[in-house]
Design a protein around this nucleic acid. Structure first.
Lengths: 134, 134
DNA sequence: CTGATCTAAAGCCATGATAGCCTCCTGATT
DNA sequence: AATCAGGAGGCTATCATGGCTTTAGATCAG
């Protein structure tokens, strides 16, 4: 799976927040979306750390978008929530284990890199504003 | 992760098999690739069931390609090994849980479908022959 | 200024999928 | 019949995903 529940919830939250003038509490969002609030809270925290959302504590606190919708790319959102860029494929970490050492089989990576590149571009060029327009 | 170890091992095995005139035993492949043989055996069985490989029992048995390399697409390989088509995203199964019920948020799916389509086409059009040429 | 209350932040568990292992069964070759 | 290699199934460890509980910080009433 490339896009997990966490990313899904993040995008849904951003869509709702984009339509609200003032900050919304995480509980409000979790009610609206029927999502476990504790799980959503963690996701919103990630987005705040990545400067996609701004957070406000205390009474009348909550979350609001930190940027214009056209400056928030889906790649940023997924990277923020997932902790890493969405990878089609993970190369075996240890050199010993990595089969691409062997000359006759190192040929499978180029096509994966090509696919990864296509996905990165697609997600990088797709902004929240684009999604809202659809 | 879209492409798992199992798919990786499958592709590597196919590359080696494409260069061999006679069938190779699963143990030979697992030695060549430094892959646990019991895990690889299961993968090769999947490929045989999907008519990507032909299997031969008994002495001098083993596996060999069942088709021309240009007739084996990466999508077929991954589907065979993974048991399902590689999905960018899994929609929440129960209707109650699926947020796309709510009118104001059902807008995230189109872009995912578009991405999924691009990936399917990419993997579907990419044959083993293409990979060998690279 | 103080503390009670509100909300985000951080840290901690449970479940399920992935990766890898082992054993027995089936069919082919000799 | 004996042996060799694939077929089939279950078993275990590990890790990411998803969800819950406690802690830290801001606001406001008094």
């Amino acid at each position: 799976m490339l896009i997990t529940k966490a990313s899904e919830y993040a995008i849904l939250s951003l869509i709702i927040l984009s339509k609200s003038a003032n900050p919304l509490r995480s509980e409000t969002l979790s009610n609206d979306l029927q999502i476990p609030k504790s799980f959503l809270a963690k996701i919103l925290q990630s987005l705040a750390k990545s400067d996609i959302l701004k957070s406000y504590k205390g009474v009348n606190g909550g979350f609001s978008l930190a940027k214009d919708t056209k400056d928030i790319s889906m790649l940023d959102v997924i990277k923020s929530v997932e902790g890493k860029t969405p990878a089609v494929f993970e190369c075996s970490p240890s050199i010993k284990e990595c089969p691409s050492n062997k000359a006759h089989i190192c040929s499978i990576w180029p096509f994966l890199n090509k696919l990864q590149g296509k996905i990165d571009i697609f997600l990088g060029e797709l902004s929240l504003a684009d999604i809202l327009e659809e």
